[in-house]
Computed example of a mutant assay.
Amino acid sequence: MESQSTLYGFFEGCWKNGTVLTIEMKKAVEKGRITQAEYDEITANERGNAYPDQE
């Protein structure tokens, strides 16, 4: 199994509690902080509701 990106756990936790927006997740992929596959895996889960998503 491939190792996860260093920030995978951070973005996964933020997604679960709703403190990261979809657009921010996409920028994390663009900047190489997480991979597209990790983005797909994280965003397949339900997003928390701490902040409303703008997308």
Rank of each mutant, 00 (worst) to 15 (best):
Q36I: 05
G32R: 07
R47L: 03
L21G: 06
R33H: 12
K27G: 04
I34V: 11
T19K: 10
K26A: 06
E55Y: 12
F11V: 00
S5H: 06
G32K: 06
R33K: 13
E41F: 05
Y8L: 04
L7Y: 15
A37C: 06
F10M: 10
A28R: 03
E55Q: 12
S5G: 08
T43W: 00
F11Y: 15
V20G: 00
N17C: 14
I34C: 03
N45D: 12
R47A: 06
G18W: 02
G18P: 02
E24K: 03
G18V: 01
K16N: 13
Y8V: 09
C14I: 00
G9C: 07
L21M: 09
E30N: 10
L7I: 04
Y39T: 05
E2N: 14
Y39G: 06
E55H: 11
A44T: 03
N49T: 15
P52C: 07
A50C: 12
N45P: 01
G18S: 08
L21S: 12
Q36G: 11
A28K: 04
Y51S: 09
A37R: 05
E30H: 08
T6V: 14
A50D: 11
K27E: 14
V20M: 02
G9V: 05
N49R: 13
R33A: 09
L21V: 01
L7N: 13
T22L: 15
E41R: 06
R33Q: 14
E24F: 07
T35I: 04
K26S: 06
Y39W: 05
M1R: 06
G13N: 10
M1L: 14
G13C: 08
W15C: 00
E46A: 13
T19Y: 12
T22A: 11
Q36D: 12
M1D: 15
N49M: 12
K16E: 15
Y51L: 09
Q54C: 12
K16F: 08
Y51Q: 10
E30R: 10
M25P: 04
Y39S: 03
Q4P: 08
G32D: 06
A28F: 10
G48T: 02
K16G: 08
G32F: 06
L7C: 07
S3T: 14
F11E: 01
R47N: 02
E41C: 04
G18K: 01
R47I: 04
L21I: 01
E55R: 11
D53L: 07
K31A: 11
N45Y: 13
Y39Q: 03
F11M: 05
S3V: 14
G32M: 07
S5C: 07
E46Q: 13
G18N: 05
Q36F: 03
T19R: 11
G9M: 11
Q54N: 15
